[in-house]
Design a protein around this nucleic acid. Structure first.
Lengths: 225, 225
DNA sequence: TTACTTTGTGTACATCAGACACAAACACTC
DNA sequence: GAGTGTTTGTGTCTGATGTACACAAAGTAA
């Protein structure tokens, strides 16, 4: 309930941060911005911002996501709330963090004059991060790994059509371990997560691969691996 | 990151709510308070309150927990943040919700003049709740069910020593389905979640039951069921 | 001593997970 | 158009795990 227990005239600000992931060049990448504002000048951080008066944190996270990447139909879920009183040197700010997953192809990175730079960083080689954003990304990666195993979220990291090899690579890259090809294919097909489209991707100097699509492009709980 | 993107001079308040569970009389119970304050007079709600300026939401949740139940060593974890702008009729309040699990025996319910009443309610027969607390409890129950299956959290619902039948009842009540006795025992023993103490609980007009204890009384991730 | 109640234990069967290798299909080169 | 290179696509066997199931043992109370 929400009636005051402490004297508490608060001056706490509420922000949202969006840990945006994609898989690209064989690595799990997180989108980071480079800050201009003192005292964080030059530091990298997860994109975010103070929420508006009538805005939900989820709306704010989606706004940040589209502003930065141009993508609007991505998976977005609340991660956790970070509220250490000392997390921001400039005052008490609690942040409701979100995780977003976008398909690499769809992204058109947009920078604003507010930031010095915007780019993808491999999660295995992150730069020094402002605030508690190192923890935040770590928690986000853990969540992503877990969800990949027991849901179909991978749909949000791939275009509408893809080969099973591409899907398998998503799993191998994020989980950080090899996956057996035959067992993996049997599994996603038997579980009905993906369905063949009949069409094939020609092109390479090799046997063409059948294209598949997710049966549902929305969160579904299924033990995948 | 946390620099303003919107003009945003905020007057959003931050609260914490604690969904406190116990198992008692063969049911999963949630602790609720009955409110006095208008416009919620007479309504039931999850205990909570606005957080202090220098206080974390977790500290606030623990404070609420001990204030209401007298229990200090319970499992407590962040659940989610609820931030619909209309969730509180009196103004914009976002709430960081926590889940707490306490052993029924330890609890000494304490009421304050702030509330009309404080009591345990079976989660299957809740009264009408204020705010978005119906959703909040529902999400908490889901989380509890999930965690029971793949962690050892049940420790926080039982006293230091207990019989395997009592442990099994916790699982059956919360999961809402019967559990096979022999398979359950083999599982918790083989996994090393609990260990026998050698002592037995005499008393009933029947064969005495051996008392067991959790090997670790802290969160551990293990596939239990 | 008998009746009652709850505890404590083992096995057989079905299902699932994990390891593993080779032929098929295309592009490119000569 | 034959040969080479590269990636796709497929089935079986084995060990591990999950699931179903029934009865003797140990107390108390009468």
């Amino acid at each position: 309930m929400t009636q005051p227990k402490q004297p508490a005239e608060q001056s706490i600000k509420v922000a949202t941060d969006a840990v945006i992931f994609t898989v690209r060049r064989g690595e799990l990448m997180a989108l980071l911005i480079q800050m201009k504002k003192v005292p964080y000048t030059g530091k990298w951080a997860v994109p975010g911002g103070i929420i508006g008066q009538a805005e939900t944190t989820e709306q704010a996270a989606r706004r940040i996501l589209t502003t930065q990447t141009g993508v609007s139909d991505a998976h977005l879920e609340q991660l956790a709330t970070f509220d250490d009183p000392k997390r921001d040197k400039l005052g008490r700010v609690i942040s409701v963090a979100y995780v977003a997953l976008v398909a690499s192809e769809k992204v058109i990175l947009k920078t604003t004059e507010k930031y010095a730079d915007v780019r993808w960083w491999p999660t295995s080689k992150l730069p020094a991060l402002a605030y508690d954003h190192k923890d935040m990304v770590a928690v986000a990666v853990d969540r992503l790994r877990a969800k990949l195993e027991y849901t179909n979220v991978a749909w949000s990291l791939l275009p509408p059509q893809f080969t099973l090899t591409e899907l398998q690579e998503i799993y191998e890259i994020i989980l950080g371990r090899p996956v057996d090809k035959r067992n993996f294919r049997r599994r996603v097909l038997d579980l009905g997560i993906v369905v063949g489209t009949g069409t094939k991707r020609m092109g390479g100097a090799h046997r063409p691969a059948e294209l598949y699509a997710f049966k549902r492009r929305s969160m579904e709980y299924i033990e995948v691996l």
